[in-house]
């Protein structure tokens, strides 16, 4: 008496096709040559097959990034879909690599593929997790930094889903501000 239902045989399609990228810092090569497309996926099952197969973010060496973007958008500021945009940025301290990083990254991915941002989903470009000695970073990229209502809703949802305490502020930076920064800090356009 096999109880395999048709539902179990059909993969669950995602609203968007997503591309996973891997970046490994190698100063001997151009920045672009260090960025590689891993694969694309458009079902829940294919996402898990990929996620379960690769290293956890916390186990990557310093200087590496994982990026997951909508298919057709490169994880670069210069991409047409990104150049007017910005990112919600989470800076993690060194302890948080062991306590929060992997959870934050997975939760962010589940928000992307599950379309957790509702009507704001169209504003989402992708997300990046960066492993750095001075402190890891997680960014959620949106396509237009001049859409305050949408950006604020996205920020609130992200903060809620990651269970970041209300008293810890989360900032949104425009990519253009980050490119021309003179000091070590980039001003926040928005905050939740």
């Amino acid at each position: 008496d096999l109880s395999i239902t048709p539902e179990m045989l059909i993969k669950h399609p995602l609203q968007n096709r997503w591309a996973m990228w891997f970046f490994k810092s190698d100063k001997a090569r151009d920045w672009c040559d260090n960025l590689r497309l891993v694969t694309t996926f458009d079902t829940v099952e294919d996402f898990w097959a990929l996620y379960n197969h690769i290293q956890k973010a916390s186990k990557l060496p310093s200087g590496c990034d994982y990026s997951v973007f909508k298919d057709g958008i490169q994880p670069k500021w210069e991409d047409d879909q990104n150049k007017r945009g910005g990112r919600w940025l989470i800076n993690l301290n060194k302890q948080q690599r062991h306590t929060d990083l992997d959870n934050f990254w997975l939760e962010t991915l589940l928000c992307l593929i599950g379309e957790a941002f509702d009507e704001q989903s169209d504003d989402i470009c992708g997300a990046v997790v960066s492993i750095r000695t001075k402190g890891d970073k997680l960014g959620l990229w949106t396509r237009d930094c001049n859409r305050p209502d949408s950006i604020m809703k996205i920020g609130k949802t992200l903060k809620e889903r990651l269970k970041i305490p209300p008293k810890i502020p989360l900032g949104y930076q425009a990519h253009t501000d980050a490119i021309v920064k003179t000091g070590s800090t980039v001003k926040n356009r928005y905050q939740v």
Binding site: I4, L14, Q15, G114, E115
Partner: peptide
Amino acid sequence: GKRQYDREFLLMLQSIPESC
């Protein structure tokens, strides 16, 4: 409508082996 999946449903599908 959008194909939306909540986190619990997505997490449940993680544990189903690929052969299904």
